[in-house]
């Protein structure tokens, strides 16, 4: 049992490495922009350590720099991060029943798009050791990247740093493509979501919607289509 826990933790750590690689350039940019906008270095790092969100933090940072009210900041944060609620509902079904409630409440802090996606496609129930492992390295990467950006002492050449921006997306591809090869349903759901997000990016008038909303809309529509056309049988659900 003990060995099992340790293995799960290491497995989580390993799965977290590509997430962290993708986080560093993004959080670096965050740190850089925050300090350029007048936010103290310590505050920029603290925002990353207490929020652990990409789009949400960037939106909040801009509002802070513009001198927005706390209500405005709260509402924007709420809207941009609302998709985490969907992910949290999904994880509530996937986390092992054996995990004590207080641990679940701590793990909830680590729900990000990437961490959710990796954990949601794991077979079977999720243990707290696996989740703790999965969250650890991306969390460190996120804080470290912010600190590096805030102190503008990046060790990476700019070209490599900008190329690293693709890491998260490659990771997404590594999850979706093998699944889509096996299951027509996963392929249809992913392609539907891609079509919707492309439409909201390029079609005039509707392309002004924020990324947070686009992801929510694409997720709800594509998953609903999947659930209606390819309903899952009881025993298939893990």
């Amino acid at each position: 049992m003990k060995m099992h826990t340790k293995d799960d933790f290491y497995k989580g750590l390993k799965h977290g490495i590509p997430i962290a690689l993708g986080y560093i350039p993004v959080s670096f940019t965050f740190g850089l922009m925050a300090v350029k906008g007048g936010i103290p270095v310590v505050a920029a790092i603290l925002i990353s350590m207490t929020n652990l969100t990409s789009a949400g933090q960037f939106a909040g940072m801009n509002l802070i720099i513009e001198g927005a009210s706390l209500i405005e900041i709260a509402l924007t944060t709420f809207i941009v991060n609302l998709r985490y609620m969907l992910m949290s509902i999904s994880l509530s079904q996937k986390l092992s029943n054996k995990i004590p409630d207080f641990k679940k409440y701590i793990l909830a802090f680590g729900i990000t798009d990437e961490i959710f996606a990796i954990s949601a496609v794991q077979p079977g129930e999720l243990t707290s050791s696996y989740m703790a492992g999965l969250i650890t390295i991306p969390y460190i990467g996120w804080a470290l990247g912010t600190a590096m950006g805030a102190l503008t002492s990046s060790l990476l050449p700019p070209t490599l740093q900008s190329a690293m921006g693709i890491a998260l997306y490659c990771m997404f591809i590594a999850i979706v493509v093998p699944a889509a090869k096996e299951s027509k349903a996963a392929l249809v759901v992913a392609l539907t979501a891609i079509t919707i997000s492309s439409a909201f990016t390029w079609i005039p008038y509707i392309n002004s919607l924020s990324t947070g909303w686009v992801i929510i809309i694409a997720t709800i529509v594509a998953s609903s289509i999947g659930a209606v056309i390819f309903p899952r049988e009881e025993d298939e659900y893990e």
Partner: peptide, 19 residues
């Protein structure tokens, strides 16, 4: 249940392209 099962593929698809 089916919706939640398909959700990660939808989220990932929407986030990957055109991002």
């Amino acid at each position: 249940k089916s919706f939640l099962y398909y959700m990660p593929y939808a989220v990932l698809g929407a986030m990957t392209f055109p991002g």
